[in-house]
Computed example of a mutant assay.
Amino acid sequence: MSNSGLGRIIKDGLWGSNQALVALLGLCPLLAVTNTAINGLGLGIATTAVLVASNGTVSLIRNLVRSEVRLPVFVLVIASFVTAIELSMNAYFHELHKILGIFIPLIVTNCAIIGRAEAFASKNNLLRSLVDGLSVGVGFTLVLVTLGGMRELIGQGTLFDQAHLMFGAAAEGMSLSLGSDFQGMLLAILPPGAFIGLGLIIAIKNLIDKRLAQTTETKPEAIESGAEAGAS
């Protein structure tokens, strides 16, 4: 298996086919919990773990499951991993678990997870499926943390506040603050702020993609011009 094939999977998961910015899947938890960066990071790690585990399992059993029952089986696999992760978070990250609440078990209904199981893991080998699950999960997590950090900074004037919920008391110094005089913008941490923030992130991604496409088109033209000049 070529490294270029795996590289393409990683690139698509992180950027080209990012489930939150391109496919627009999993928006319910993404918009609901991203009022802080730590909340986004916690849900992102949980989602990534489910993606990797479910993709790997689906890949291993893909030739054993009849097509008529594949979707119920995939949902059962996903639900099993979500339950295990929810219980683990409740045991080791109890306060964060309480904050994220219902959105942890709702990972089962995340269209991105069942979508990758059906569209990719059920058709590819174990290694490719694991890489796909990891890259898609990390791409989703980056959007969660970026949106959460942006809303937290604008709305509360802090960044990585309550980091101790994930990393323990030693992480209390991770929190950044714009100062006690910063009033903040309430809109940023309200539901409309999530929609506006996500729209801005998508717009920035589309702008970057457009610039990259223009650069790619310009390079062959420059090479051809140089070759013609050399021939003359």
Rank of each mutant, 00 (worst) to 15 (best):
L126D: 00
L126M: 07
L126T: 00
L126E: 02
L126I: 10
L126N: 02
L126G: 01
L127T: 15
L127D: 13
L127E: 14
L127A: 15
L127R: 12
L127I: 14
R128A: 14
R128K: 12
S129N: 04
S129D: 03
S129F: 07
S129W: 06
L130R: 07
L130W: 08
L130S: 09
L130N: 06
L130V: 13
V131F: 03
V131W: 00
V131Q: 01
V131S: 04
D132K: 01
D132N: 07
D132S: 09
D132C: 03
G133D: 04
G133A: 08
G133L: 07
G133W: 07
L134D: 04
S135K: 10
S135A: 15
S135L: 06
V136E: 03
G137N: 09
V138C: 00
V138T: 00
V138H: 01
V138D: 00
G139S: 11
G139D: 11
G139L: 10
G139T: 08
F140V: 02
F140D: 04
F140T: 03
T141P: 06
T141F: 05
T141L: 13
T141V: 05
T141G: 07
L142Q: 01
L142D: 02
L142I: 04
L142W: 00
V143G: 12
V143S: 11
V143W: 03
V143E: 09
L144K: 13
L144N: 15
L144I: 13
V145Y: 06
V145N: 09
V145E: 07
T146Q: 00
T146V: 00
L147T: 10
L147C: 10
G148C: 03
G149F: 02
G149V: 07
M150N: 10
M150I: 13
R151V: 04
R151P: 08
R151N: 10
R151D: 05
R151W: 01
R151Q: 04
E152L: 02
E152G: 10
E152T: 02
E152I: 05
E152F: 03
E152C: 07
E152H: 05
L153A: 15
L153W: 14
I154C: 12
I154H: 08
I154K: 09
I154R: 06
G155E: 03
G155W: 01
G155Q: 06
G155L: 02
G155T: 03
Q156R: 14
Q156H: 11
Q156S: 14
Q156P: 10
G157T: 14
G157C: 13
G157A: 14
G157V: 13
T158G: 14
T158S: 14
T158H: 11
L159T: 07
L159N: 09
L159F: 10
L159G: 13
